[in-house]
């Protein structure tokens, strides 16, 4: 980017940036600090640095929250759902973006998806519980995948529709000319062009589904199938006074998502930088 030198403006901008970073980091900083403090240390001061690396919180926290078992459940629920969401929503978003103007049914679908984004989950809680009980899908991880995918399709499609509209049709049309079917054209030509938005959709849903609370709390009740978030809910309820222990467990549970984001972030940035959106 070319900018003229503008010293006072630059300084103000830099200060704003640093101040904003500090405001965002403080809560995390205090959480990490707290996780390394023993209980008496914490009661003396919240802000002081820990006297040493008190790792007992982590060991105890991971043991009591049965970390590796719930980690496995979270992985088995999150990743299959995200793959299904990207595949189904990209196709759906593509079709709506390209054909809705001339197809009443697709226009309706777009509106229904949009409307469904506004529905509060509580309206579905009881009916979903009843359906799952009848189908014997309660406390089943595949059943959970089904629900997570179904509730995420609408938003993911919504994101794809906007993106597909900004991709010129000419590329696809030249593929039709060469005798490619629409389905084949989509997977060979369009889907790769959707990579930036697919990365965004995947990254966002990894976070959301990993952190899902509303659905997990009603579908996954048995100890065996609890995901990390559900586990945490009960865990925080039990250890409200033991901040150190609770934060240690929380920090460990967030490592997989943060690692995953660090990895996905590159794709989001590259996708945007590649300029696939510009016509």
């Amino acid at each position: 980017m070319k900018h003229k030198k503008n010293m006072p403006g630059d300084v103000i901008l830099l200060l704003l940036m640093l101040a904003t970073i500090v405001i965002f980091v403080i809560p995390l900083y205090l959480a990490v600090l707290t996780a390394f403090k023993s209980k008496p240390e914490l009661s003396r001061s919240v802000l002081a640095l820990p006297e040493g690396l008190y790792l007992e919180n982590f060991r105890e926290g991971m043991r009591r929250s049965d970390f590796f078992h719930s980690l496995r459940n979270s992985v088995l629920v999150t990743f299959p759902s995200v793959i299904l969401i990207v595949l189904c929503a990209s196709m759906s978003g593509y079709s709506v973006a390209r054909h809705a103007q001339k197809t009443a049914a697709l226009q309706l679908l777009d509106k229904v998806y949009l409307a469904s984004l506004m529905i509060p989950f509580q309206i579905l809680m009881i009916p979903v519980y009843r359906i799952y009980k009848a189908l014997n899908l309660l406390n089943s991880l595949p059943g959970m995948v089904l629900m997570l995918t179904g509730t995420s399709i609408a938003y993911a499609s919504f994101l794809y529709v906007g993106f597909v509209k900004s991709i010129p049709r000419e590329i696809e049309e030249s593929a039709y000319m060469d005798g490619c079917s629409e389905m084949k054209t989509f997977w060979i030509i369009t889907f790769p062009l959707l990579k930036p938005v697919s990365a965004t959709v995947a990254a966002l849903h990894v976070m959301w589904l990993w952190n899902d609370f509303n659905i997990s709390i009603i579908l996954l009740q048995k100890e065996m199938v609890r995901t990390i978030t559900v586990k945490q809910f009960y865990f925080f309820g039990q250890y409200t006074a033991e901040y150190g222990l609770a934060f240690a467990a929380a920090i460990v549970s967030m490592i997989p998502v943060i690692v995953c984001f660090a990895f996905m972030q590159k794709y989001i940035v590259n996708g945007i930088a590649a300029g696939a959106v510009k016509s």
């Binding site: 196709m91 593509y94 079709s95 054909h99 197809t103 049914a105 499609s157 629409e182 389905m183």
Partner: peptide
């Protein structure tokens, strides 16, 4: 175009 939206 309908086949595209069906799975979702």
């Amino acid at each position: 175009k309908y086949l595209f939206v069906l799975p979702g």
